[in-house]
Design a protein around this nucleic acid. Structure first.
Length: 492
RNA sequence: GGCGGCGUGGCCAAGGGGUAAGGCAAAGGUUUGCAAAACCUUCAUCCCCGGUUCAAAUCCGGGCGCCGCCUCCA
């Protein structure tokens, strides 16, 4: 049984317009996203980009497409060589360490590995072949220094992605060192360099690839000359993506990526993240403080094309939301116990609405913010359903189907997949160390309060509760005793 | 200087010609020893000024403010 993939619209940086996704090969989407340069641990900005493309890939699959996703590791680069020198190690050793760290960090965020994760160091023959093609057809030239440059002026539509013109680029730039280049804007395809473990023999002597050529070679290797979607951070539009297009199209004589998508950048408390501001946040540090699903929700809460802001109040909000989501799942699971394998009919709540709302939002340029709004409304309806009276068997069946739909949609967003009870406990305890309170202390206080309540000494029991609230712990008296949780909102 | 984006309730954030999704906070209610949680209810005319239109937050022009890129960057 094959069903038609869902129609998807997305905004193309190349044209500035929203257009329908029509894969070169019907039903199969080939996409490429620029990965990280492995000279240091990944920061949350990398997380934003990785999570976003992870979701696109998962959504495309959910929408019925076969997806081939390539995400590279740039493991040969100036910065790697520089950093390795500082640390007194070989570049390839540093790169290897950081590639692994990057994989670990992405896994912490629930980012699934791409189908192909090529590295520059393992693509040298393909890169050299592409540079040779460019030299042979006059799109590039070698210099006496052993460098090879791309001839920007030979491409009439150079600048089409970023909306720039060669003349404007010239006048707008200062201190352009021409060196042995024919023209100041020509960029390097191959650089003469003899650093051990970061250089290779080539027709132009020993050296290494320039910055942009790797992606062109990798895309061609795994996706072909023309493919469907290419993306990355907005900051890569120029010069990186612009140059990729130029060199690929010159080498292949074919259109490169059909649709370009770019995510906004990440700010922290509305400030650009930078080491000098001291707000540089690594993924591995971020997940210590906030569960990865909170991080994902923060990213999802804004449309990908906007800049995403990470803020303490934002995290608190999503922390609370996450608790609400899992709490709802917990209630649904409880209501679904002993559900019949199949039921005559649903009642009070239709899981199809959850999927429909989700698709409506996501198929329109991956509008995760709208998808989250749909999820919120669906959750709200589910809770209403749980509180209402229904035929028992049908209610159990409906609860189960509803939970299935939530988990299904959550899987696409990379949330709501964990064990419910464990997650609820984890959320409770996650912030404890920051509050300086232990579980034992809380439980002891609850026991003391219980005794006071039984003695109807409410003044004392309230005092105990207020004391805990002061520390950031909320108590909830339920039918089966008192439970507690960390109060997400610290102030206001 | 060039190119691009943005300005929506106290805060965050969708929408983008037909009369404002969602979340946080807040207020009232149900519940509770009192609370909390949950549930119900309430809460905006979209930076300013012009214009186009039967109709504009949405289109056009002009302001003001913010941001990104043009140099390594996800």
């Amino acid at each position: 049984m094959t069903t038609e993939p869902r129609t998807i619209y997305l905004k193309n940086t190349l044209t500035g317009e929203k257009q329908r996704l029509e894969p070169v090969e019907p039903g199969k989407v080939k996409m490429y996203a620029c990965g990280v340069t492995t000279y240091d641990y990944c920061h949350v900005g990398h997380a934003l980009q990785a999570v976003f493309f992870d979701i696109i890939r998962k959504y495309l699959r959910y929408a019925g497409y076969e997806v081939v996703y390539v995400r590279n590791h740039t493991d040969v680069d100036d910065k790697i060589i520089q950093r390795a020198k500082e640390r007194g190690m070989a570049p390839d050793v540093l790169a290897e360490e950081m590639v692994r760290a990057a994989d670990d960090d992405m896994a912490l965020l629930g980012v699934e590995p791409a189908d192909f994760e090529p590295r520059v160091s393992r693509m040298i023959p393909q890169i050299i072949a592409m540079v040779e093609t460019l030299v042979a057809n006059g799109s590039a030239y070698a210099t006496d220094d052993g460098d090879v440059y791309y001839r920007v002026r030979n491409k009439d539509d150079y600048g089409k992605l970023s909306g720039r013109k060669i003349d404007e680029l010239r006048s707008g730039t200062r201190d352009l060192v021409q060196g042995s280049k024919e023209f100041e804007l020509d960029f390097a395809l191959w650089k003469h360099d003899e650093t051990p473990s970061a250089s290779w023999p080539s027709p132009w002597g020993v050296g290494r690839p320039g910055w942009h050529i790797e992606c062109s070679a990798m895309a061609k290797e795994f996706l072909g000359e023309t493919f469907d979607i290419h993306g990355g951070g907005r900051d890569l539009v120029f010069p990186h993506h612009e140059n990729e297009i130029a060199q690929s199209e010159s080498a292949n004589g074919a259109e490169f990526a059909k649709i370009w998508i770019h995510n906004g950048l990440l700010t922290i408390e509305k400030q650009k993240m930078s080491k000098s501001l001291g707000n540089h946040l690594l993924i591995r540090d971020a997940v210590k403080k906030w569960p990865f699903e909170v991080l994902r929700l923060s990213i999802l809460s804004q449309h990908y094309s906007s800049n995403v802001d990470f803020s303490e109040t934002g995290f608190q909000t999503f922390f609370k939301r996450l608790n609400y989501y899992y709490d709802t799942l917990s209630e649904l699971d409880l209501a679904a116990e002993n559900a019949p394998a199949s039921a005559e009919s649903l009642e009070g709540c239709d899981p199809a609405d959850i999927r429909d709302g989700f698709h409506a939002a996501m198929s329109d340029d991956f509008n995760t913010a709208a998808a989250l709004a749909e999820l919120n409304m669906s959750m709200s309806k589910a809770r209403e359903f749980l509180g209402a009276k229904h035929d028992k068997a049908r209610k159990r069946f409906t609860a189960r189907e509803t939970a299935v739909a939530f988990r299904e949609v959550g899987a696409v967003l990379g949330i709501l997949q964990a064990d419910v009870a464990e997650t609820l406990t984890m959320l409770q305890e996650h912030l404890l160390p920051l509050l300086g309170v232990t579980r034992e202390e809380i439980e002891a206080a609850i026991a003391g309060r219980k005794a006071a309540r039984e003695a109807k000494n409410y003044a004392r029991s309230d005092e105990i509760r207020d004391d805990l609230v002061e520390k950031g712990i909320e108590l909830m008296d339920g039918r089966d005793g008192t439970t507690w949780r960390v109060r997400p909102q610290q102030s206001n």
